[in-house]
Amino acid sequence: MNVSGPSRSGVGDGRGDVIVETRNLSKTYRDFWGRRKKVALKPLDLEIRRGEIFGLLGPNGSGKTTTLKLLLGLIFPTSGEALVFGSEATDVRKNERIGYLPEESYLYKFLDAEETLDFYGRLFDMPPDERRRRALMLIEMVGLARDRKRQLREYSKGMTRRIGVAQALINDPELVMLDEPTSGLDPIGTREMKDLIVDLKARGKTVIMCSHLLADVEDVCDRIAVLHQGELKELGRVEDLLRVGDVTQIRARGLPPAAEAEIREVLARHGGTGVEIGNPKTTLEDLFLEVVRDAEARPGRRAAASLRGGDDHSTRAG
């Protein structure tokens, strides 16, 4: 299932394993008369590398789903370009290596789980034996073995979400795009979904996900991009973005209270062993809200470095 399209940029399997790249990618929706209706995405430059879990965050209407649709070729850019595996996003051959879970599981309700996976397997030109093997394996994996003969119209939202995930993985894709993957799932389902995403990463897959559920993103994403009103406001590794740079946190386990004074004394003398010292984190939710507030206060600018404490480090005991 290799895409053999020519690489226009050297991205993809060659240069640093960048498999998704956008250059000045923008999207403006227009009405029937060509008048500008909404700027959904302002020029966006992104690179997503093989094996990482990349999260697109933003409030409603921020452009994250638009970005995903542009990467999938479901809509066309107004300017700029989106490259996936080195091919233009509108090149249908790239889809052989992609799995996509839409925000709602847009599936044919009159099919049952087996028929659904068989249908999507056919779309990948998979031979019958492989289709059957993959379908059974995925149905088992998403926990729908007992309900595989029921029409999807009878499924609960959570079950529909699971079969949606299964169809996204039917071709064992290299790149998985998930739009609100935990939407509609109960806490257990959410946990399983997050485990699945982490497992995909462990198997060398690349995952791009949109989500409103910040805790989920925080739990699984390596890097995130925060969009607001179609504009990229923040981009980086989650642990970097969440680090509070002007605070130093020291953690220790099982120390008697008397030892704290001793640690302080030790710290005062610049050293010690068995003591964990690091940067405490705020929550992703706090960061997200601050980014949004900052964006509204200062439109057209990237989020202030001070929001994440810059590179300043200060040490504080206790």
Partner: peptide
Amino acid sequence: KSRTIQTVTTKPVR
């Protein structure tokens, strides 16, 4: 309209 087409066109379907 129901967007089911999106799960089809995101496969290698011409």
